[in-house]
Design a protein around this nucleic acid. Sequence first.
DNA 1: AAATCAAACTAACAAACGTTAGTTTTGTAT
DNA 2: ATACAAAACTAACGTTTGTTAGTTTGATTT
Lengths: 189, 189
Amino acid sequence: MKTTSRKAEIIAEASQLFKEKGYSAVTVRDIAQAMGIKAASLYNHIESKQEILSVLILDLAKAFTTGMERIQKLKNSPLQKIEKLIELHIDITVNQSEALAALNNDWMHMSEGDVLDFVAMRETYEENFRNIIKDGIALGQIQPRHPEVILFSILSTLRTLYLWYQKRGKLDVNVLKRDMVAVLLRGIV
Amino acid sequence: MKTTSRKAEIIAEASQLFKEKGYSAVTVRDIAQAMGIKAASLYNHIESKQEILSVLILDLAKAFTTGMERIQKLKNSPLQKIEKLIELHIDITVNQSEALAALNNDWMHMSEGDVLDFVAMRETYEENFRNIIKDGIALGQIQPRHPEVILFSILSTLRTLYLWYQKRGKLDVNVLKRDMVAVLLRGIV
DNA sequence: AAATCAAACTAACAAACGTTAGTTTTGTAT
DNA sequence: ATACAAAACTAACGTTTGTTAGTTTGATTT
């Protein structure tokens, strides 16, 4: 009863190394050693080192896109949608912090075509997020500040959450969601 | 009348490349080409590729430490000190965005000793920031939420500001400061 | 017992890496 | 003109890189 394919194991092991040292500083021999095999053996399962990176990043990008599409369809207010988006990021962070590191730091090392796909998905995601913020401002639910500053402030916090979660003793996810929503939406004063 | 040393020019050029591709993906031949010289010629001015990275990161870390020490001595309230810290980060971002990228992403590629120095400086900085937040909570100036969540939320936004500043048409610095202070301290609702 | 198949292995490759040694060029001061 | 120092050059080095080719191992199926 094999539950995970060998390829998936390799990708999981590689993602941890990528998170620690970055894609370019990790060699295929590092990955092989972490698996307890020789470097050449990896190529029975993967096409290239770059393929590992692309699988990691593009799968995760799709998860964000899917989540955004689901939330957009809800009959909620803009503010409630932003709460859902914060929860989406936290859920993904908790389950995929290694892939998140690669997505944040190493996307430019994918093949040219994959980079184009990724950047397009990213821009669409940000555009959708920005529109929800603008809707909230139009409805008077959100303060009339530059939407770009609001978007950036929320997204940068959520995107680097993976660096803190785990270092600080893996806080309870529900407590984290509640506190993050409070701080990001209502400030600290 | 030489105004900048050749070494400083190399470090400036390298920092731009590091920002785009990361330290490990940039070769000394890349740096040399950007300077219009051969790779070996670099070594008339620098000791190693790693030295460039360490100069970039440790100089910047010292700027943060110095700024923190100056602000701590002020006779201001905790909230006013946090405002000053936000302004400190923005000033540094505007003037040194390339070095900030290296500090955020490539500090682990310095020599072992330099990494230890850097991590110690970083922890001290965060500890001082956290204490200011705690003072604000004790005084009732800041809402009684987990200080760690507040610290993380503010710092992660400020640390990744370099990714947005410039992409979004180089906003006016004073406008940026005002908006960032408003969003980070008073939220968006 | 024979055949199959996934997954490991050894050996080697050409290219790219950071760095060194020694030499030549270039501009400035004597 | 000569001397000097800064800064470039050519040539090469030993390693490490990602990857390929062909072979062996070990378990499962026929």
